[in-house]
């Protein structure tokens, strides 16, 4: 180590500028988000594998199961099923962002990076906000690619671009809310491996006990209310409406009849509850 150039390295550094409140939070979150986005470009595998799963689902469900699943008023046909399926796949894809946030945050905890951040004069919540914002960017990219794949296998929108964009906005809002669930899981488990499984395992029942892959009317009666009130179902239904992919009349249950409002409502509630819990957990983390 050269000590010749070491003059004035220790004392009297530049006085850091003072930011307060929201400005500080946004600045710090942006710095952390930048870091996470850079990581994604350095580990493209994560993005690629994040894409492969939904693409595989599109292909498998359309071509393998599509012919066997009965859609009310339309019967079983794989090309009709693809129209039905896509909103479900999109919604499933955004919720799987949970795994990215939980594994990433658990990794930062174990590698000591969270300690580094917590010892810096930065906004407490910025580490989590930055992480979830970077995940949101990744989710948006995944949705874009997935939409192109879907178009290639015959999916079409029928209500125009603005409504399509509104549907994607709903999906991103749901995904953002869910990435906060991932943040809480990541802060709670502290091993990246456990975080990946813990982040995913409950998503399967959540996404399958819904209208994503089969009509709810085909489920046992006792299960139907759960499926109707599933936050996931509301977003799927809202997207079907906005894409113009709804086949036949919408289910008569209240949440399905008011899908857009219910979708936004659920997302905001999840976002509020889990961001609060996560930030609280982060403040006391590792303590």
């Amino acid at each position: 180590m050269t000590t010749s150039t070491a003059t004035d390295h220790a004392i009297g550094g530049a006085v850091p500028r003072q930011r307060h409140g929201i400005a500080a939070m946004l600045h710090d979150s942006w710095v952390v988000a930048k870091r996470n986005l850079r990581r994604m470009t350095r580990i493209p595998e994560i993005v690629v594998f994040g894409l492969m799963q939904p693409v595989m689902f599109v292909l498998l469900f359309s071509y393998v199961m599509g012919g066997a699943i009965q859609i009310p008023m339309a019967g079983a046909s794989s090309s009709i099923y693809t129209q039905f399926l896509m909103a479900g796949i999109f919604a499933q894809t955004v919720t799987f962002a949970v795994a990215g946030a939980s594994a990433g945050i658990a990794e930062d905890m174990t590698k000591g990076l969270v300690d580094r951040f917590r010892s810096l004069p930065m906004t407490r919540s910025a580490v989590l906000v930055g992480r979830t914002l970077a995940d949101l960017v990744q989710t948006a990219f995944t949705l874009l690619v997935l939409a192109l794949v879907a178009l290639a296998v015959g999916w079409r929108i029928h209500n125009g671009i603005p409504r399509m964009l509104a549907a994607f906005a709903l999906l991103l809002l749901l995904g953002y809310a869910f990435s906060w669930i991932g943040a809480l899981i990541g802060l709670s488990v502290r091993s990246p491996e456990a975080a990946t499984s813990a982040g995913l395992i409950w998503l399967f029942p959540l996404t399958f006990i819904s209208n994503a892959f089969v009509p709810i009317s085909s489920m046992p009666h006792w299960l139907q209310p759960i499926a109707y009130w599933n936050p996931f179902s509301a977003t799927v239904q809202a997207c079907r409406n906005l894409f113009g992919n709804q086949i036949g009349p919408v289910d008569s249950s209240w949440p399905m009849q008011h899908a857009i409002v219910v979708s936004i409502g659920w997302s905001l509630v999840i976002l509020a509850v889990f961001s609060w819990l996560s930030v609280r957990k982060y403040r006391s983390a590792a303590g």
Partner: peptide, 17 residues
Amino acid sequence: RSLIGLSGQYAAVDEYL
């Protein structure tokens, strides 16, 4: 926090940066 520097037991740097 703005007056201290901390270096821990394990190198807390981001491996992918």
